[in-house]
C-alpha cells in the first residue's frame, strides 16, 4: 500500500476520534485516492461543532504541510487510544473544506498533494 494512502488513513482516524470526543456517534469517512492528490472527507451528521471548536480546527490547519515532520512522526497519528494528535495532523494534510450547519452536521475535507507536496515547500 502506498505510504501516502496510509498517512491519509491515519489522519482520518484522528478526525474520527475528534468527532467521537465531540459527541458524534454517526460518522462517515470517505476517501478518493488520486495519482497526484488524495482526499479524505469525514462527515458527522449528528453534531454541529461550536464556534470555538471550529476555530480550533481551522488553526490546526493554519500552518503549512511539513513533510519532514509528517514523514517521520506521522506514524504516531491514529495510534493512541486516549489522546488526539491534531497538531500532527495539521502538518500532514491541507484543509480543503470545513462546514458546520444545523441539519447537515459537520463535514471536514482534507487532502494530500503528492507531487506538489514534494516540491512546493519554498519560503
Amino acid at each position: 500500500m502506498k505510504f501516502d494512502a496510509v498517512q491519509l488513513m491515519r489522519v482520518a482516524e484522528e478526525l474520527l476520534k475528534y468527532f467521537y470526543t465531540k459527541g458524534a456517534r454517526h460518522v462517515v469517512l470517505s476517501y478518493d485516492f488520486g495519482a497526484d492528490r488524495s482526499f479524505c472527507a469525514a462527515h458527522a451528521k449528528d453534531i454541529v461543532l461550536a464556534s470555538d471548536d471550529e476555530e480550533f480546527l481551522r488553526r490546526v490547519f493554519d500552518g503549512p504541510v511539513q513533510p519532514e515532520v509528517a514523514n517521520y512522526y506521522g506514524t504516531l497519528a491514529g495510534r493512541r487510544r486516549d489522546e488526539l494528535e491534531m497538531e500532527l495532523v495539521g502538518t500532514m494534510v491541507e484543509l480543503d473544506e470545513l462546514s458546520c450547519e444545523p441539519g447537515l452536521g459537520t463535514r471536514i475535507l482534507v487532502s494530500r498533494r503528492e507531487m506538489e507536496y514534494r516540491s512546493s515547500h519554498e519560503h
Binding site: T21, K22, F56, V60, D62, P64, R81, E83, L84, M86
Partner: peptide, 18 residues
Amino acid sequence: MKVAQNYIRHHDVNAEGH
C-alpha cells in the same frame, strides 16, 4: 479521552519561520 484545545491566537507560521 480529552481534547487538547489550547491554541491561543493566530500567528503567521511562515513569517515566524524566517
